[in-house]
Design a protein around this nucleic acid. Sequence first.
DNA 1: GATGAATGAGGCTTCATTCAT
DNA 2: TATGAATGAAGCCTCATTCAT
Lengths: 210, 210, 210, 210
Amino acid sequence: MPRPSNTAERRAQIARALLKIMAERGYEGASIGAIAAAAHIAPGLVHYHFESKREILLAAVALLAQDHRDRLDRLLAAAGDDPAAELRAFIDAHLRVGAQADPEALACWICVGGEALRDDGVREAFAGALEGAVQRLVAIARRGARARVFSLPRAEIDAAAAAVVATLQGYFVLAATARHLIPPGSAADAAWAMASGLFGLSPATRRASR
Amino acid sequence: MPRPSNTAERRAQIARALLKIMAERGYEGASIGAIAAAAHIAPGLVHYHFESKREILLAAVALLAQDHRDRLDRLLAAAGDDPAAELRAFIDAHLRVGAQADPEALACWICVGGEALRDDGVREAFAGALEGAVQRLVAIARRGARARVFSLPRAEIDAAAAAVVATLQGYFVLAATARHLIPPGSAADAAWAMASGLFGLSPATRRASR
Amino acid sequence: MPRPSNTAERRAQIARALLKIMAERGYEGASIGAIAAAAHIAPGLVHYHFESKREILLAAVALLAQDHRDRLDRLLAAAGDDPAAELRAFIDAHLRVGAQADPEALACWICVGGEALRDDGVREAFAGALEGAVQRLVAIARRGARARVFSLPRAEIDAAAAAVVATLQGYFVLAATARHLIPPGSAADAAWAMASGLFGLSPATRRASR
Amino acid sequence: MPRPSNTAERRAQIARALLKIMAERGYEGASIGAIAAAAHIAPGLVHYHFESKREILLAAVALLAQDHRDRLDRLLAAAGDDPAAELRAFIDAHLRVGAQADPEALACWICVGGEALRDDGVREAFAGALEGAVQRLVAIARRGARARVFSLPRAEIDAAAAAVVATLQGYFVLAATARHLIPPGSAADAAWAMASGLFGLSPATRRASR
DNA sequence: GATGAATGAGGCTTCATTCAT
DNA sequence: TATGAATGAAGCCTCATTCAT
């Protein structure tokens, strides 16, 4: 009569504790002891559920990415079938700060980017999440192009999507480190102007979606 | 007769050593010992020239920013007085990879962004560098607007400049962690399309500057 | 109706698992987890059957000694009643390497000798096994002396037996750590020469038993 | 004006501290903290002078072997040119317990033998020391054979030397773990009887050297 | 009996910093 | 200025042992 395994929840609990600490102290600053304390468990338990600290990071990145995907799914679903609306929703999901803004996730995401420089596993996860975003945009662009809502050459879709993702990522960094450089409320609009320009949205529609 | 002080050079030497190590191991991974080894000096000497490891980081960020400013000065000077050419040169300076690309500086810059989340001094230096970039763009935009090369409302100049800087910063992150997402050669062109759009450059001039 | 106790087998199973691990990682290196894995049981079960890790070691030493005794019984029985043959069989049982050689037991035995330095219980078991070997030799020597096959003074029997046991033990160490120092096949013969000399076996019989 | 390096002495100091602790707690039981305490230095200093705990062990084994070689040199020098006397001195050096007996070194030697099972570096050092002993015996045997003091075939010299070394090593183990099995004072005599037998010393000389 | 989670101590190692020379 | 030894505090990880089920 063994006790039912709770490993899955524990792992998530620990990974979330890492995110919490990492947001304010960085990955290196998130000691196993601090993580355990944040998760309200004994330090030794951490390494019962994870091989190494790095594994926790990988799990945490996966959580972060999943959370983000989920949120995006929700917000894009509300955009219905209109590619322009989807594009706008995509941008707003990333840049509209409001009730659902999550500064912790933002800080973590930047930390993860830093770790990705040195750890292939992290890089893969990080790049994977970015790629996911790019592919969503590509899908939106293709549908929009087919529906003649966008008018950009097939060959430029990838570049346009990457540019949009880069802009969003860059805004993250600015928002987290030099917020005063972004005129309040301007981020989403500027990104939208830029994206709709790249996607070849007609000026009329463009303005309508502001 | 005291020997002439060489503190200034030593400090630069040490700060550059930090950059070298930090590029591949991160800030935490750059131990004083490793820095000293990279600078070809004894470990004890490091703390003779710097109060603490953090001071080295601050000096290194300053170096990084100065190097970047210098490079930008050089490249913008070549653009003459034409605001559109300056804008293009500004973008190319950041995204054109070629002989002068510096992956080490790139990695360091991302690391510094991460540290900026936690250290106010680093944040100031990092944000200061970003602000410098924004202001250059603002200056270009103003001159361009006055010369009717750009047609963007005064009130939107700051937002546009911030958006461009965000895009460049975002491309840095992508280039360092998920280069395959950027179609080769597309970064500068996409950023240019975006920037010239935001700045209200006439389509004709836009194409001419590709 | 309680299920029938299987404690005895479980204990043996666990102790044998310790021997297996200890042979290649030493006693300290044999973690409870590793032992449990080698025994194909859950880690928690180990401490149900044993008070402590040390108890497992004691049980393992007992097993090792018993195995050795059993093997010796079998081999000496084949030597019939002839003291010289018994002596030779005794030596061969320890030094003839062949199908029945057991490098795992050899390594364990040396480990146990090391632990005996620090743990009185282990020392007793280890010394007990050595004493058993000495006593067997003493018995053989006494019978041989009575039968005039050996010609050594009563007072020297103990010393001779101890010397033989020391030699065997020493060969174990050499075999396990510096096998190349032992000319192949020479161990049993040299030990025999030495033992028969100490026991005062007539040169003729000596040669006959080679 | 750097401080003169004291690394060599520090290393020896630390290695000797390890021997001291290892004698009573074993290698695993000799924690870095305990070693540092025994050496009267701060814990951190240990790893300034040694890469790893294992390196300390290797240094300690080297010290142990060197000490032993030195002692042997001294004792053998006193035996003059007489091979039989040298053989006797060799045995006495190892088995005569008296003022110069060193139970700490004895315990360490057995520990080292245990570690040799698992660590190739240790094995090499341990086997090297044993080989040194064998070679000394071989040299004595050769000179004795040439001088017709010993009468053993060339081909058996190696085996005889190995047998003697095995016996000495075995006596070490017995002395450290089951001393009561060795009739007091019998070890050197029994080993001598055995060695002189193997070396083919004439019975007359044999008795004379007791 | 059996399972696997939980605990907390302790080990090795790294490191920023200080200090004697 | 410069050197390299010295210090002590963490940090990651392992582990024997206990416990709830």
